[in-house]
């Protein structure tokens, strides 16, 4: 069996006396498409923060390509190919879209250690950045400031930034959150067409999206893995229905 790209072993985290992540095990194979679902407050974003290193776990380990990265900083993990998007846009709002991407490429390649060369002088960086924007149909917005874009377009920039990191593992924290429902399909099309080699963990509330996108699903309840399996198994699981899904399951509820 191949080593998973990302592996989480026995991860625990408490805020004071409140355990928010309890003994979580999780593995992403190369090219995985896994959804992380669970009720509000289940600790999904906390888990992403623990995996990326924004938070330190109380105990447990995070492995990237079989290598223990638990002690590494968030930035160091990012440089090793672990990228994320944020549930709430976290971008350089006062910079142009293109600059947001160029900055990411610059930090990825160590260009930003250069104090002397002009930032725009490397055509290859700009061209690569424009390729990402092309792919997400953002080329026309390249020179607009991020804060001038509608929220839905900003969500796409959020994804473009993560892609510009050339990640091996990508954690998408509710990529369509806050986007008007008329525009969600734009974002979901992008998510569905991402590079098949990247291992992706997506947090999502919309069950239609989850069942369309994911090949595996992990259900998180009160900080612990409740169960995991294929979409069909999860859909058929009566316990999952009871704690979380309820009527939200396609074919069984509000979406039809």
């Amino acid at each position: 069996m191949t080593v998973p790209v990302l592996e989480v072993k026995g991860l625990n985290r408490a805020f004071g006396a409140l355990p928010v992540t309890r003994n979580v095990d999780l593995a992403l194979e190369k090219g995985a498409r896994r959804a992380l679902i669970g009720p509000n407050g289940a600790g999904k974003t906390t888990l992403v923060n623990l995996i990326t290193g924004a938070l330190k776990p109380s105990s447990g380990r995070v492995l990237l390509d079989g290598e223990d990265i638990t002690a590494l900083s968030q930035a160091e993990r990012a440089r090793r190919g672990l990228a994320r998007t944020f549930q709430i846009n976290t971008l350089f709002r006062g910079l142009t879209v293109l600059e947001n991407i160029c900055m990411t490429i610059g930090e990825r390649d160590g260009e930003c250690n250069n104090l002397w060369r002009a930032a725009g002088a490397k055509r290859s960086v700009i061209d690569e950045a424009l390729d990402y924007l092309d792919a997400l149909r953002l080329t026309d917005d390249a020179l607009k400031l991020v804060r001038e874009l509608p929220y839905g377009r900003q969500r796409l920039v959020e994804i473009a930034v993560a892609l510009a990191q050339r990640p091996r593992v990508l954690l998408l924290d509710e990529p369509a959150a806050g986007v008007p429902s008329s525009e969600t399909h734009l974002i979901l099309d992008v998510v569905a067409s991402l590079d098949p080699d990247i291992a992706i963990l997506i947090i999502e509330h919309d069950m239609e999206v989850v069942f369309r996108f994911a090949r595996q699903i992990t259900v998180l309840v009160a900080g612990a893995v409740f169960t995991e399996g294929t979409p069909e198994e999860i859909m058929a699981n009566a316990d999952v229905r009871a704690v979380y899904l309820g009527e939200a399951i396609p074919g069984g509820g509000r979406h039809d």
Binding site: T52, A54, S73, Q74, A75, E76, R77, A78, R79, A83, R84, F86, T90, L91, F92, R93, G94, L95, E99, C102, M103, T104, G106, E107, R108, E111, C112, N113, N114, L115, W116, R117, A118, A119, V161, Q165
Partner: peptide, 23 residues
């Protein structure tokens, strides 16, 4: 105007994002 200068602007604009992109 160097890439380093750009990174400084990035830190000013959004330090969380800078950590996330590996700066």
């Amino acid at each position: 105007y160097s890439p380093f200068g750009q990174a400084l602007t990035g830190i000013r604009e959004n330090v969380r994002r800078m950590h996330a992109i590996g700066s």
